Amino acid sequence: MSRESLSDLNTRTLIGNTDARGTAWHYRADLQAEEPNHYPGPIPVEDVRRRLFDWHAISVPVATELPADLQTMTHLDQNGHPARWSYLNERQAICRDDTFEVMGIFAQGYAMHQYDEWLVATVADILDSDLAISSAGLLRSGAIAWVEVSMPESIITPEGVEFRPNLLATTSFDGSIATTFKRTITDVVCDNTRETALAERGPTFKVKHSRHSTTRLSDAREALQVVHSVAESFAAEIHRLCQTTVSQREWSKFLDRHVPIVDKHGARLTGRARSIADKKRARLDELYRHDIRVAPWAGTAHGVLQAVNTFEHHDATVRGATRPERNMLRAVTGEWARIDSEALQSLHAVLA
């Protein structure tokens, strides 16, 4: 089951620039509480602080419950027997200071990166007339957070690809991700997030939750400036991909590599495995040939990657989460980079 209900997505996320981009998939007017979470223009910095990050993480002791006698007991356990607490001095629990919900348990060397300091204050330093907060949110009851900065207006390349450069700042209190600042691209026609340089990893700056991590805050602020260079580099990458032709025979070979119908020993898949593979191949082929989000670039490397990315965003099976939650987690954990990279490697192998 997903931890994020529709109510959570409508109260724990903020979506900006809806006049130009429309509402989010999960938008429900009746779940908006006292004020809507969608903004016609940019999201004010103070609203992010007030509505999402008005609490802090705190460290509390961790203890285990052990049997005791009448002399050593500190309390009665759930069965009414004498028990005592034994503190684990080498461990700490990270909790919210408003709900006291435990988000993670770590060694004493773990350092908390408060959302207001690492995400809001750091991002606010680079905001100007060309950059604004476009989305922000909490996942897993506050254990993961992100702030996204974007250029207000989309860019259209000569090849007809409309995109929007973003900077994603994210961190966690459950140990799932380091504090990360990375550039992404939203392909506006289908709201896909892709890595900027598909052949290589886009610029990413990560800071582990260690004792000395606070000394790297100034480095993080410098790393955030890369958002200004995203548009030119991505446009060049799009041009290269659109100039790389892919024949129908090469597209078929790509499907054989990307969604094989044989196992690692060369034997043909059967039963449910074959059915799943056939269904995915058919959907990818349909997107590639006929879907308006992909078909205009069929016959090029960009079309191939767009088909894969669109499928993963909108068609791939989702388990244990809602689709918006899964897509957002893939962005903050770097999973989209892996998907793009694997697809590109398969295509390079075919074209070679």
Rank of each mutant, 00 (worst) to 15 (best):
E4L: 11
E4I: 07
L14G: 01
L31Q: 13
A33M: 06
N37H: 13
E46A: 05
P61N: 06
V62K: 11
E65Q: 13
P67R: 11
T72Y: 11
T74Y: 14
R84W: 15
S86P: 04
Y87V: 10
L88G: 02
R91T: 07
C95R: 14
M103N: 11
G104H: 09
G104W: 12
A107L: 12
T122Y: 05
D125S: 14
D125C: 10
D130W: 14
A132C: 12
A132T: 15
I133D: 02
I155K: 10
E159G: 05
G160Q: 04
E162A: 07
E162Y: 13
R164K: 12
T171L: 02
G175H: 06
I177A: 00
A178Y: 15
F181C: 01
D187H: 12
C190G: 10
N192D: 03
E195P: 09
G202S: 06
F205A: 01
K206L: 02
K206D: 05
R211L: 12
L217A: 09
E232W: 12
A236G: 09
C242S: 00
T244E: 00
S247E: 00
S247K: 00
E250L: 01
I261E: 12
D263K: 10
I276L: 09
L284I: 01
E286A: 08
D291H: 15
A295G: 01
W297Y: 08
A301S: 01
H302I: 07
H302G: 04
L305T: 04
A307G: 02
N309P: 04
T310N: 00
H313G: 02
V318K: 08
T322S: 10
E325Q: 15
A331K: 09
W336D: 01
H348I: 00
